[in-house]
Structure formats: C-alpha cells, structure tokens
Write a protein that binds this DNA or RNA. Structure first.
Length: 491
DNA sequence: GCATGATCATGC
DNA sequence: GCATGATCATGC
C-alpha cells in the first residue's frame, strides 16, 4: 500500500515534503525497519554495502526512490511517477562565496541531467512539445540537500522538496536551446556539441569512460555520449529564486515574447552602433570610469538599471568588452579567474575548473573600435563560445603543461641580476590560442603551491619569495585569437 | 612592436 | 580582502 496517490503530483509532493529535515541515513534506517515491508529489502542491503564504502553518484537519488517512495530505481525511459507525469530529481547545492546579490552564498552543485540524447532517435522527434526531453522535464519534484566537502552525502539533510516546472519565459529559451542542439545533430555535427552552445538547456557529456563514443545519424564521425541537462547556472537561479523564499529577482532583458533571444539582444544593442563609450557613459549618468563600464553600458542599452540581467544570470553568460585599436588589433589579451595551484594539481582536463568554465560559459562580446580621434565607438556585439577543436587543441595543451609543471613540482623561476623574473609556464610564444601570465595585485600577491612541492629559483633570490607559494597567475586567451574569432562571427 | 611580467582602480 | 577588468613597463 503506497503512502501517497501515485496519480497526483500534489500528493507526491506533499508526501515528499515529509523528508524535509531528515538525513538520507535516517530515511534509510526508517525504511529498513518498516514492518509493512514498504521497501524492497534487497535494495536496502545494497545501499548499506555501497554507502559503507564511499558515496556513489546517484546514490542518494536511488535511496529516496526506494526507501521513501517505495519503488524500485530503474533506468526506465518513462518519468519516475508515470501516472502523475512527475520526474524525481534529488540534487545537491553548496556553499559558495557570499556576495551582495547572493548574501547567503548558495549555488547548485551540479547541472541537472534530464535524459540521454539518443542521436539516432532524437532527430525523429516532431518538436520540443512532443520530445522525450519534455516528457521528463515538464514536471519535476526537486529534492535539494546541502553537500559539504568531505562528508558523505548520506548524512546530508533534505532541505527543500518542491514541484517545479520551468516558467513560461524560461521555456521559450529552453525550446530555442533544444532546437539549436537538434540543428547541430541534423547538420552532422554532434561531435562538435558543447554546453556553451546554448543558454539554459545544455548537451553535457555523460560517459562512463572518456573514450566512449556514439553513432550519429548524419555523419560517420563518432560523438561523445551526451545528455540534455539544465545547466549549473540555471539550477543556481532556480534554487535562489524559485525554491528558496524571499530572494530578489534580477531584471529581465526581454519583456514579452521574442522568437530568438540572442538575435533580440544583438539587435537591441546594435541600435547604438557608432556611439562612443563616453557618450553612452554620460547618457546613462555613470559618473566614474569603472572597470566594468563595458558591461554596465550593455545592461543600460538593454534597458536594465542594475548590473545583472536575469537571462544572462540563468545562462551563465559572461559579458566581455573588447577594444579594437585603429590598426585592427585587440589591445589586450583576455583574462580569467586566478589559478588555484592546489586545486589545479588535483584536477584532470576532463573535469577541471578552467576547462569546465570554458565548456559551460557562453560569452557575450561587446566590441568597441577606436576611431581616428581615439574615441571608442560601439562596433557591434556577438555571442560566442569556445569551439571544441580549440578547446581540445591548444587550450588543452596549455592547461596540461601548466598542470604538469605545478603538480610535479617543476615550477622554476629565473631571476637575473636586475631582479627580472621569468618562469617556465606556457607562454604566448608557441601557443596560438592561450597562455599563462600573472594576474594579481602585484607579484607579492601569491597563492599556495601544492603541499610537498616547492618553487625552484635559479640565479638571485628576492625578498618576496616564499618557496611554498607563487605569484597568482591565470589562463589568458590570446588577443589575436579573439580577433580571429570575431572575424569568423562576421564582425 | 610585441611578449612577458607587473601593477592599478574599482566594486562586490 | 579579493576578483575583475584594464593598463603599464621593460627588454628583446
């Protein structure tokens, strides 16, 4: 006898809310001792074994299915509660740095995987409304728990349980994302899919081994197995704006309905083509010359008063303003967040901070070009993400070289008689796309090296030196590479 | 002129 | 206090 009505989403939700405040271990223990035989006993024994070792991916999800809802976990294609059309999703969130706009500092820990993309079958679907994806995503019961580093998730508490359907304005974009992914598959380019291609719905890689490949219908090239997923940034927005109570929402760029989000943004900003940064700055009443002026002006041109935009936030779009000099060169290389040497040393390319950032982030380039008088005039804008071949080519090489030097403790400084410092990290020379360079307050602004590794110094020493830490560096994308990418985007 | 290392200014 | 975006300084 079920303790809820399997045909009613509300009943499933209300029964699910009974988990709030309980740990997964408590849910398991209660089920184990349930005299009604509510749970398959074999499954419970299985859990004890698996969780005695270490936390298993999907482990707590299966635990909730079997120990709380009392059905056997399976990889059935249908929704978990077929009669109610509800899909159960147990998903972690985590603590991140607190900011003014995220005062408690919570973020989704992972993207939400919805369903595998069967390249051969998905192209036969009539449209999004009739897709297998929509069947799985139209009504989800989200179960959130806080993941703490170093703690087995089985000891986490269930914090939120809520039915969720993406709101209409998000669905418009999810539908466009779906079409974009389908178009790439229909063009025989499934092997070039990337999470950065789309906004809220991503095609994330999902394979047991990094060498796994799948057939695709319109090309002989094998493609990585991928799944439709709601991206991490979107899930963070869902958590902080739809699930947790009392959060502020950001202003949207689109009010009403548009058929193509990106085209609308480009067109709206494009109306200001030819205007100078200074003119725009004064028009929008910005008194100072902040470093993020380019981004601020982009928001103003989109009719947004603050320095955040709901759609960009949900999609994880990063605004980068680019200045082209009169001679056609981009003045500066493009910087990224500082490298944590300790994290880097433990990472692999398949799952690393910088690689994941580039894979998941869509960029919005706002381009200003210097005129003869030296004024920067808006030249246009475009959306961009790193092409797979570049990511897996030079960027990967630069990352791997940097990783190996740091992880193996092979970082070497040469200091000449004048005190000029050079290191052996990958340079722009010899790398067409990316390089590594300092990026901190000054060279005494350092980050710790992995434990047990030490900075080697040849030549002279320097007062700021400490052989367990080194000047903060970051990965940079080369200016000429960005220039070339802009040209490919028709700018 | 450009690569590389270094630093500045502002906002969160 | 630190990340971020931007720019500077020097030597080859």
């Amino acid at each position: 006898m079920k303790k809820y009505d399997e045909t009613s989403p509300e009943s499933i939700e209300s029964y699910g809310k009974g988990m709030i405040g309980k740990t997964f271990r408590e849910i398991f223990d209660a089920a184990k001792d349930d005299p009604d035989g509510f749970v398959a006993k074999d499954a419970c024994a299985d859990y004890l074994r698996k969780h005695a070792q270490k936390s298993r991916k999907g482990g707590v999800g299966n635990l909730v299915e079997e120990c709380w809802f009392g059905y056997e976990a399976n990889s059935d294609d249908r929704p978990d509660f077929p009669e109610a059309g509800v899909e159960l999703k147990v998903t972690p969130y985590k603590q991140v740095r607190k900011t003014q706009l995220n005062p408690e500092g919570f973020a989704a820990k992972e993207r939400l995987v919805l369903t595998m993309i069967n390249y051969m079958e998905v192209v036969k679907e009539k449209d999004f409304a009739h897709s297998h994806l929509w069947e799985k995503a139209q009504l989800m019961l989200l179960v959130w728990y806080l993941h703490l580093q170093g703690r087995n998730d089985i000891d986490s508490t269930v914090d939120y349980v809520q039915l969720f359907t993406p709101p209409a304005e998000d669905l418009e974009i999810i539908r466009e994302d779906y079409e974009k992914i389908l178009t790439k598959i229909r063009d025989g380019r499934a092997h070039e899919l990337s999470e950065g291609d789309t906004l809220y719905l991503g095609a994330c890689t999902k394979a047991a081994k990094s060498t796994d490949r799948r057939q695709q219908p319109y090309s002989d090239i094998l493609a990585k197995p991928r799944a439709f997923s709601l991206k991490n940034k979107y899930m963070t927005y869902v958590l902080n704006h739809y699930i947790r109570p009392g959060r502020v929402t950001y202003e949207p760029a689109v009010r009403g309905k548009v058929s193509d989000f990106e085209a609308y943004i480009i067109e709206t900003i494009g109306r200001h083509r030819g205007e100078s940064m200074e003119e725009l700055r004064k028009r929008y009443g910005i008194e100072t010359h902040p470093k993020n002026l380019g981004a601020m002006l982009a928001y103003r041109m989109l009719g947004i008063k603050g320095n955040h935009c709901a759609e960009f936030e949900k999609a994880g779009i990063a605004i980068k303003s680019i200045r082209i000099q009169e001679n056609g060169c981009i003045k500066e290389n493009m910087s990224f967040p500082p490298i944590s040497y300790q994290k880097l040393a433990k990472e692999t390319w398949e799952d690393c901070t910088f690689g994941n950032y580039l894979r998941e982030t869509r960029f919005f380039f706002v381009v200003y070009r210097e005129d003869r008088a030296g004024a920067l005039r808006l030249a246009g804008c475009c959306f961009w993400n790193v092409p797979v071949r570049d990511l897996e080519g030079d960027i990967r090489a630069v990352w791997q070289e940097t990783h190996d030097i740091i992880a193996d403790g092979r970082l070497v400084l040469d200091i000449d008689a004048k005190g000029n410092v050079t290191n052996n990290l990958p340079k722009k020379h010899g790398h067409p796309i990316a390089h590594v360079r300092p990026h901190g307050r000054n060279r005494a602004d350092t980050a710790p090296l992995p434990e047990g590794t030490y900075l080697a110094v040849r030549g002279n020493t320097a007062a700021w030196l400490d052989d367990t830490a080194y000047t903060k560096q970051c990965f940079w994308l080369n200016n000429d590479y960005i220039r070339h990418q802009l040209q490919l985007s028709g700018m």
